[in-house]
């Protein structure tokens, strides 16, 4: 089954290259796509593996990063063309400098689908901090100021009417260590990291991010301002192929249109990129647990992005006079909210 599919892919690629299919671009264009080895980047991996990029006339080369921040800088410097990442203060600053534009939505919190979780470390939990309300004055882990973790923590704190001390720890790995050893009290993270360690007793899941941030646009598709303005055909081709990947992902993993088989096929594909250091049987639960909605048609929730922007501004993390239009080019995809 797998083999035949791969053969089919090769065939598809070949036909695309020979120009017999319906390419979106007359000539094959070489582009670089930045990615993290997370399940949330699956849409790009699927579009590549299933030849959707090739059909769209794009010769995609992935460039892998360890963190979202350098990826944004790499877009600004022109080293990569497209990428998916959370809206962060850094992204907004780069947009203000006219370097990048958000052109579509990716990961979205959606009611009914398991989303990101608020966690309390076991040490604090045992000490009696058992709900988000109890976190008043406690240490809340973030990677950096202005990161999505900071946003999620701050919005929750505002809703609960509590104060949090945000503790920057730079990397997810460092935060996990600090949570395990009880050096910080609380954090939020995607479910496939949250659940296994909750089961292992390292921390306790005490809330859903979607309860505080319904329809939260977690990650967005973005590109350089130059691409958004001058490479319309290429950008549209990319988004179209990306959307097909997202649709396949949602169909297989959320709607489970092809049942167990469909999930397994998709896990095989994603495992080529994510958790490559683990055997398939160990990677599969994490990949399945990590399932979240990637927006259909890369639709962008402008309302959520506006909310994030306003929060960054209210915190003084970015200039107060940046408008949503500087950040978002809404001409490519359907927008919600706003």
């Amino acid at each position: 089954m797998k083999l035949t599919r791969r053969q089919a892919l090769t065939l598809l690629g070949a036909t695309a290259a020979s120009g017999l299919s319906m390419p979106a671009l007359a000539e094959k264009k070489k582009i670089k796509v930045g990615a993290l080895r997370f399940t949330s980047h699956s849409a790009s991996f699927i579009a590549f593996e299933r030849g959707y990029f090739a059909e769209a006339g794009l010769d995609v080369e992935f460039q892998f990063f360890q963190a979202a921040q350098p990826m944004a800088v790499a877009i600004a410097s022109g080293d990569i063309d497209y990428a998916v990442t959370a809206v962060s203060g850094g992204l907004v600053s780069l947009a203000q400098k006219g370097a990048i534009k958000v052109i579509g939505g990716a990961l979205t919190e959606e009611a009914g689908i398991d989303g990101q979780k608020y966690l309390i470390s076991d040490a604090s939990y045992q000490a009696g901090i058992q709900s988000l309300k109890d976190l008043d004055g406690k240490q809340y882990a973030v990677t950096q100021a202005g990161s999505s973790f900071h946003y999620m923590g701050a919005k929750m704190a505002a809703a609960e009417g509590i104060d949090l001390r945000f503790t920057p720890l730079q990397k997810v790995g460092a935060i996990i260590g600090a949570m395990k050893s009880g050096q910080v009290d609380a954090w939020s993270i995607v479910p496939h990291i949250a659940k296994p360690l909750a089961k292992a007793g390292a921390w306790h899941i005490v809330g859903n991010v979607s309860d505080y941030l319904p329809d939260y646009q977690v990650t967005t598709v973005f590109t350089s301002a130059k691409n958004a303005a001058n490479e319309r055909a290429q950008t549209e081709a990319f988004l179209a192929a990306f959307s097909r990947g997202a649709a396949d992902y949602a169909a297989a993993m959320i709607d489970q249109a092809d049942g167990e088989d469909g999930v397994n096929t998709m896990v095989d594909l994603i495992h080529k990129y994510v958790y490559t250091d683990r055997p398939r049987e160990k990677a599969a639960p994490s990949i399945i647990n990590g399932t979240m909605r990637i927006s259909t048609g890369a639709a962008l929730n402008v309302g959520s992005v506006q909310d994030q922007l306003s929060w960054f501004q209210s915190e003084g993390l970015v200039d107060a006079d940046i408008s949503i239009d500087q950040l978002v080019d809404a001409s490519y995809v359907d927008t919600v909210g706003g």
């Binding site: 203060g89 850094g90 600053s93 202005g146 730079q170 910080v184």
Partner: peptide, 21 residues
Amino acid sequence: EMLGAEYGIGAYILEAGSLYD
């Protein structure tokens, strides 16, 4: 100041870097 520093010149620089400020 990478780990767990709210205030400090190092933390300030790291924050500025992550905000691309």
